[in-house]
Amino acid sequence: MDPIGRRPSALPSLPTAAPAETRPAAAPVKAAATNAVSQLQRSSFEAPVAKAAAAQPMPGAWRGGPDTPVGKAIAGMVERMRASDASGIKIKGDTMESLFTRAILDNKHVSNDQLLAITQVKLDQLATSPEDRAKVLQKVPNARELPVHKFTVGMLAAATGIDPKALSEACPDLGLTGAPGTPLLYAAKTERMQRSTALHDFTDYLRGAGVKGMNKAVWGVENRILSAAVSALGGGRY
């Protein structure tokens, strides 16, 4: 027995609690949450837009699927047409793609074989002779700078796959009303005539390059002069 007056032994020391974890600052948590919400909102917005773009039908899709020869040819034409349209040149409200789609791709008088033949046309089949080039530039020195020339060159180059700069150099008369070998050669003032000329040059130059039936498909007659008259009078199948 312990003697009277002895102090009780000291209580054993309790284990010290581990320090609480340091909480992350509130600002980074808020920023992370904000970023997550923004990303979710952006995804929710972009998904329908991307889906809508993917669902948009390719012009002329009724002619053949994307894996068919004509489908691939049309996709290449339209892709180049849209790249050319980035220049912003329009004639009477038409872009190169819209005029090409309405007058050529949606025209049931234009066959798939003709579209495939267009992609095989080479520059030398379209080129104006050096003598006629000189006549063109003598009458219209700024021919290559005209919006109607750039529009016509862009549409024809996109359809054939020919380099537009080379085509402009070889055919300064593209987009001009009339012909180099005649007294009638000028830059049309009205947009109606400019659009008519651009489309007729498109069909007639291809006819001259060996793609038969292009004038008839669009204007109703194949002859160069008669089809040009129909074009000038505002006729045609488009």
Rank of each mutant, 00 (worst) to 15 (best):
M1Q: 11
G5S: 07
R6E: 07
R7Y: 02
A10H: 06
P12G: 03
A18M: 11
A18S: 10
V29E: 09
V29N: 05
K30Y: 05
K30P: 00
A32H: 05
A32E: 06
T34I: 14
A36K: 13
A36Q: 14
Q39L: 14
A50R: 15
W62G: 10
T68P: 01
T68W: 01
M77N: 05
V78F: 07
E79A: 15
S84E: 15
D85E: 12
A86Y: 02
G88F: 14
K92R: 12
S98K: 03
T101Y: 00
A103W: 06
N107G: 03
N112L: 01
L116H: 07
K122F: 01
P130F: 04
P130V: 06
L137K: 06
P141Q: 05
R144Y: 00
L146I: 10
F151I: 02
A158C: 13
G161Y: 04
P164V: 13
A166T: 11
S168G: 15
L174E: 03
K189V: 13
T190N: 13
E191V: 04
F202D: 03
Y205N: 15
L206D: 08
R207L: 13
A209S: 11
G210H: 09
G210E: 10
V211Q: 06
K216G: 14
K216M: 11
V221Q: 09
I225V: 15
Y238W: 14
Y238C: 12
